[in-house]
Simulated scan of single mutants.
Amino acid sequence: MHIDKSKFKEDFDNNISSEKIFTAEEKYNILNKAKSLDTKHQRYNLLKPSIIISLAAVIIFLLVLPNLHLINLRSDNFDYKIIQEIDFPINKEEIITILGDNYVPVIPSDDSLEDVESLRWDYPLIKDYEYIEEYDFLDIEGIKEGKLGSQVIVTFRNEEVISISMLYKEEDGSIYLLHKNKDKSNKIPMN
């Protein structure tokens, strides 16, 4: 509610004159009260941008909250459960957002797959450890020896993920290959 000061004063003077029961002091108090109402309104207008910014921050937080479990994926060894949580369909851009952009293009070894590409993500535990392999083979020895924390290979067709394979070691020392596609997920022991 915005108070037009000049109109208020005019209405006030016309309706409440010195002949009425209000004294000059009461008239002054009423005018000051009206001014303070207008000042509160102006303060409220100044708060609007900060309220809007706060609401925007809350909305952004709520949008990010469902994906918080994906934030710390680029560590040396991330939990295989992350791969289990990925739902199909998912595209190349989304998987790179999840796994990071530190990947190596590799040649798919399965000749039966046509028009596909594969990318490999290595998560070394030893600084400067590098697994050199042009095909989509996984580094089981690197995992066994503790040089590599985990390794992920993702195969795409037309920018859409068709399969994800992750080689990793569990806390008890067992090595597993987790293979997942749109139809099923398999956890295969490798030792």
Rank of each mutant, 00 (worst) to 15 (best):
M1D: 02
M1F: 11
H2Q: 08
S6K: 03
F8H: 00
K9Q: 10
F12Y: 00
N15A: 08
S17R: 06
S17N: 02
I21E: 03
I21F: 00
A24E: 07
E26A: 09
N29S: 03
L31R: 08
L31I: 00
N32R: 09
N32D: 04
A34S: 00
A34N: 02
K35R: 10
L37F: 13
D38C: 08
K40I: 06
K40E: 11
R43W: 08
N45L: 15
K48V: 11
I53W: 02
I53S: 15
S54M: 11
A56K: 04
A57E: 13
I59E: 03
L63D: 04
P66Q: 02
N67C: 09
H69R: 12
H69C: 09
L70Q: 05
L70F: 09
L70E: 12
N72D: 07
R74Y: 02
D76V: 13
D76K: 11
N77H: 02
F78Q: 13
D79Y: 07
I82P: 10
I86G: 10
I86V: 09
I86A: 05
I86F: 02
D87C: 00
P89T: 03
I96S: 06
D101P: 02
N102C: 14
Y103K: 02
P105S: 06
I107Y: 11
I107D: 01
P108V: 02
P108S: 05
P108T: 04
P108N: 08
S109H: 08
D110N: 14
D111R: 13
V116L: 06
S118N: 05
W121R: 02
D122T: 02
P124R: 09
P124V: 15
I126V: 08
K127L: 15
K127Q: 15
D128V: 13
Y129I: 07
E130I: 06
Y131E: 12
I132D: 15
E133Y: 11
E134M: 13
Y135R: 09
Y135E: 08
F137T: 06
L138H: 00
I140S: 12
E141F: 10
E145G: 08
G149Q: 14
I153R: 02
T155N: 05
N158V: 06
E159I: 07
V161N: 05
S163H: 08
M166K: 10
M166T: 01
M166S: 13
L167D: 00
L167E: 13
Y168F: 14
E171L: 03
D172L: 06
G173H: 00
G173E: 12
G173L: 01
I175D: 04
H179Y: 14
K180T: 04
N181I: 12
S185L: 15
N186F: 12
I188W: 00
I188S: 15
M190K: 01
M190V: 14
N191S: 14
